[in-house]
Amino acid sequence: MKNGDTTKTTFERPGTGMTDWSRFDAMSPAERSRAAAADPDARPLTEADMKRMKRTPQVKVVRRALGLTQEDFAARYHIPLGTLRDWEQGRVEPDQAARAYLTVIAREPETVRAALEQRRTGA
């Protein structure tokens, strides 16, 4: 079977991806807030919404504060690299034990590193 043309052709709609920021820039902060509140698809979160949401540990913030790459952080603290990436990208939320471990790492990174190294060397 001959497949002569396998190039997929896509058609762009005129004006897609083009935002007229001049209208937005001309609005006052109060007008912007009213416009956002009136949009049923993009309403700002209320205080009740914020209270209902769970706070996810900021794994990336902890890792960057320590100056480590994902690979180094994962190796140093014995966390599977794929798991760390999933946490950082929001695909998976750390369970309660992992959140506790991350809290300890954030507060005492050298103590955790030393304890894990002792375990590995048998000291």
Rank of each mutant, 00 (worst) to 15 (best):
R113D: 11
Y77R: 00
V61L: 15
S22W: 01
A97F: 11
T10P: 06
A100E: 15
R107S: 14
L102P: 01
R113G: 08
A42I: 02
A98H: 00
R91F: 10
S28G: 10
R91D: 10
V62Q: 03
G90P: 04
T83C: 09
I79W: 00
L68F: 03
A98M: 08
A48Y: 10
S33Y: 10
D39N: 09
A37Y: 08
R76Q: 14
L84Y: 02
E31F: 03
P14F: 12
M53L: 12
E71Q: 15
V112A: 02
A35F: 04
E88K: 01
P29G: 09
T46M: 10
F24Y: 11
G67Y: 02
P109R: 01
G15P: 02
Q89D: 14
E47P: 07
V104K: 07
R85I: 05
A114G: 15
F11T: 13
L68I: 02
L66H: 04
R113S: 11
S28R: 06
R113Y: 07
P29K: 05
E31M: 05
R23G: 11
L81F: 15
R43F: 06
D95A: 06
T9A: 11
T69C: 04
G90I: 04
V62N: 01
A106P: 01
P44V: 05
P94W: 01
R91G: 12
S33Q: 14
D41F: 09
W87G: 00
L66K: 04
A100F: 13
E47S: 14
R85E: 10
L66F: 08
L81W: 14
A38Q: 09
D41Y: 10
D95T: 02
A42P: 01
T9P: 02
R64E: 13
R99M: 12
V59N: 00
Y77V: 00
A35Y: 03
S33R: 08
Q58N: 14
Y101S: 13
A30R: 07
A114D: 13
R63D: 01
V62G: 02
S22N: 10
T10D: 15
R63G: 02
D20K: 05
G67H: 05
Q58P: 06
K51D: 14
D20C: 10
I79T: 00
P94A: 09
A100P: 08
R23F: 07
R13V: 09
E88G: 04
V59E: 00
A37P: 06
